[in-house]
Amino acid sequence: MKNNTVEQQLNHRTIRAFKPTTLSKEQLTTLYSVASHTPTSMFMQQMSIMHITDPDKRAAIREVSKQPYVGANGDLLIFLVDLYRNQQIRQQKGKDDGRLHTADIFFQGVDDAIMAAQNVITAAESMNLGVVPLGSIKNDPQKIIDVLDLPKMTFPVLGLQIGIPDQQPQLKPRLPLKFIAFDNDYHREIKLADLADYDQEVTTYYDLRDANRRIDSFTNQIAGAKLDHHYTKRDEIMKVLHQQGLCTDEEI
C-alpha cells in the first residue's frame, strides 16, 4: 500500500550538497509549525529549534561536525532538548524543579526533539527541499553549547541542514525487513551468512554510486573502526549532561 507520502519516504535520500539559496520566511514558518504540531510526551513540549545564521557560529559548528556542508549553503537548524523553559515556568509559579533533572524527563525531551526533527524532514522533502540530519553536532557537545550560549537544562541533540538540493544521490539500500521487524518475540539468532546478500547489495551500491566510491559492506562497517575502542568527545556526553543539570538521578 502506497500513497504520495509513503512514496516520498521510501525514496528518501540524504542530501549533502545544496544550492546557494536560503529558505524563505514562509518556508521556515511552515517547518517550525510542523515541528510544533509533533506529538509531545505528556504535553510538556520539551524541545526548541535554533536557526543559525551567524557566519561565525556556522563555521564553529562546521568545525565540530567535521563536514564541509554543515553551515555552508542552505539553512542550519539545531534541535534542542529544552527543559529550561519548563523549569522557569515552575519556578515562577513558586514550585521547585521537581522531576526535571531526571533521566526519564530528559529522554521525554529527546523523544520530543527527535520526532519534531523527523516531521520537519518529511515536510521539507514534500516541499522539494533536501535535508541531511547532523548527529555530528555531538562530536563535541560542550563546544556546541558554548557556541550557542545555551543555558543549563538544554542540550543540542540533532542538527538539520536544509536547502535546495544540488545533487541526486542514488538510493542507499537498507536492511531487509526480516532483520528489523519482529512479531512478539525478538529474533536473537543472527548469522553473518544470512546477511551475505545484503552485504553484496551494499557493496554494489558503493561501487556504482557517483560520489565517494569504495569497496565496503554493511557488516564490515559494523566490525570496523566506527565501533572499535577509541576516545572521542562523544564519550563526554554524560558529563556534559550533568553539567547542564540533566540526568542527575543516575545514582538511583
Rank of each mutant, 00 (worst) to 15 (best):
T154V: 06
G159I: 05
Q168E: 13
D111V: 13
D185E: 15
L171K: 10
N139Y: 12
H187R: 08
I121A: 00
V120R: 00
D183Y: 12
A116K: 12
G130E: 07
E125Q: 06
A123V: 01
S126K: 01
L129R: 03
I190C: 08
F179N: 00
V157Q: 07
P151G: 11
K138E: 15
I164A: 06
V131F: 13
I162T: 05
P176D: 09
D111R: 10
I145D: 08
P176V: 06
Q161I: 01
A123Y: 05
G130D: 05
V131D: 04
P133L: 03
V132C: 14
N128K: 15
Q170S: 12
K138Y: 00
I162N: 05
V132E: 07
Q170W: 01
G130S: 01
Q118N: 10
D111N: 14
A181K: 04
I114G: 03
T154Y: 14
A123K: 03
Q142M: 11
A181P: 06
I180C: 11
L160I: 06
M115Y: 15
L171V: 07
P173D: 08
E189L: 11
I121S: 00
P169H: 10
I137K: 01
I164T: 11
D166W: 00
L160W: 09
G135P: 06
P156S: 07
I145L: 07
E125V: 04
I190V: 14
L158G: 02
L171H: 09
Q170T: 07
S126G: 04
K178T: 12
F155T: 05
I137W: 03
L134H: 08
V120Q: 00
I137A: 04
F182E: 11
Q142L: 08
Q168P: 07
Q170Y: 01
P173F: 02
P133K: 00
G159A: 12
F182Q: 13
V131P: 02
Q161H: 09
M153V: 11
E189V: 06
L171E: 14
I114A: 15
V120N: 01
V120A: 01
L175W: 15
A124I: 02
L177I: 13
Q142F: 05
S126P: 00
F179E: 03
